[in-house]
Amino acid sequence: MSRTALLACGGGLIAAALYPLLFGGSNYAVNLGFLVLFAAFLGQSWNIAGGFAGQMSFGHAVFFGTGAYASTILHVSHGWNPWLAWPVAIAAGAAVGAGIGTLSFRAGLRGSYFALVTLAFAEAFRILANSVPFTRGGLGMLIKSDPHPANLQFRDPIWFYYLALVLCVLSLALAWWLTRSRFGARLAAIRENEDAARALGINTFREKVRVLALSGALCAAGGTLYAQKYLYIDPSIAFGVDKSIEMLLVSMIGGAGTIFGPLIGAGVLHFVSEVTRELGGALPAIKNAQPLALIVYGVILVIIVGYLPDGSMGLFRRRRALPQGQGHA
């Protein structure tokens, strides 16, 4: 990494660490910060498979829900400490990722076919969670409020903010590693051209299963954190399509396959949603701000897909690439 990049990262980290204090620990600011970091973390989990390896999933909620349910079932029904249940939930996410990967990649599914199958898996898990007894079906699962760090529950939301910050930084480090490591190079090769990757000695099936397991593990970690923060999950919260869409939206808007794409995308998304909520309050004609936010998301997505296929990170890259391109012309 260059010196300036290192400085920028350090500065960003310090700013993020001080952010809650700047606002005097106001709950609104802290919660907004949490939401951005949490969305960035989940987006990064999608980005690792969808962006770096080009295996675009439409059903990442399946991992999120697996993580949320695994830790909650262990905690609520079997009395496990959430801190202990968390790694098990992460392992469960990895296992589900490996399982879905094995099935769909063995069948040779690529592109939109793979996306559709992941969507189907998420829906299947949602319906299962609705019907089997140990998830308590549509009633959902309530975690008893007992705020204590030992229970992975905090009275002050600032601790959730810092927990999300740690996860987010770890996921950024993982993404950075992917841009430099052999594993990451293989994923990029698979994304760009699978036949050529195979010809150059890459076991594309194995690498794709691995990356989906890694992505699933990360996403499941987010699921547990969600359950511990909001103390309630049900099948549509855990496995709902909107979760899957938010993860891929955040990555696509920010720039799929880039380190900071999901973080930027998460910032944009939550900024838009806050602004539209304010507008919705200000304009009496708009009674409900939710549809307005969705409309704005939609417009942003159309603009991004139409003019910036590499996401907003593409803006920087394009500007840098231009003089080179002219040089060769």
């Binding site: 190079a185 293989r186 990029a188 090769a189 760009e192 051209n193 036949d195 050529a196 150059l200």
Partner: peptide, 17 residues
């Protein structure tokens, strides 16, 4: 079948890895 969005060096590195 180049890896179109990778640099020439990165393309060759995929083999070298």
């Amino acid at each position: 079948q180049p890896f179109a969005k990778l640099s020439v060096l990165e393309n060759i590195m995929v083999g070298a890895w």
